[in-house]
């Protein structure tokens, strides 16, 4: 994530880990899918938000 900011990616949603950007193997299947949904919803909010510099859009805890 700090790399993404550093190289200037405008809209960044932090994820759980490098090998599974859209998942979270530490939780059950349903919970993981719910997490993925929240990630994508947050990413879509990000593309609808004006930004002028690298901006981090954290996913709120469930």
């Amino acid at each position: 994530m700090s790399i993404a900011s550093r190289v200037g990616a405008p809209r960044i949603v932090p994820t759980k880990g490098i090998p599974y950007p859209a998942g979270d193997p530490s939780v059950g299947t349903n919970e993981e899918r719910a997490w993925r949904r929240r990630l994508l919803e947050r990413a879509l909010e990000a593309v609808c938000t004006p930004v002028s510099k690298p901006t981090v859009f954290e996913v709120e805890a469930a």
Binding site: P19, Y20, P21, A22, G23, P25, E32, R33, R36, R37, L39, L40
Partner: peptide, 10 residues
């Protein structure tokens, strides 16, 4: 689970 890379399901 390939959706962990490409989240097509959601």
């Amino acid at each position: 689970d390939p959706h962990r890379i490409v989240p097509l399901d959601v």
